[in-house]
């Protein structure tokens, strides 16, 4: 493994779902675009094995949080676009709230001194 790759962080279980939902809030996107968006917005820190995106997408479809539409992409290629549903939008709020709580809690545990400062 290269040094660069070691610096990247493996995604926590379940967080990929949250990231997908967050990405799609901006608007519909195809699979590759989602993967690239996650990579770019996290400054390439978050390591997504791009393929693992697809089982996650299908899981979200099955739960009714996103839907897939047929569409034509920028250079006239046929592509599948994923789009957030109303239910998915609500779920994103819930998940984001949960994540914030979790992150805060973990931060408190890891940096107890910080609060005393």
């Amino acid at each position: 493994m290269t040094t660069r790759e070691q610096e990247r962080i493996e995604l926590l279980q379940g967080t990929l779902d949250l990231l997908i939902l967050r990405t799609l809030r901006v608007g519909p996107a195809h699979g590759h675009a989602i993967a690239r968006a996650i990579e770019v917005t996290s400054d390439s820190v978050l390591q997504v094995e791009q393929g693992s995106l697809y089982p996650a997408l299908h899981r979200l479809i099955k739960r009714g949080w996103i839907v897939a539409d047929e569409g034509t992409s920028e250079n006239n290629r046929r592509a599948k676009y994923y789009r957030l549903t109303a239910k998915g939008r609500r779920q994103l709020t819930v998940e984001t709230g949960k994540w914030d709580k979790l992150a805060a809690a973990i931060a408190r545990i890891l940096r107890p001194a910080k609060q005393e400062d």
Binding site: Q50, Y54, A79
Partner: peptide, 9 residues
Amino acid sequence: EIRDHIERE
């Protein structure tokens, strides 16, 4: 879709 993804990448 997977093929398409790899092509784009």
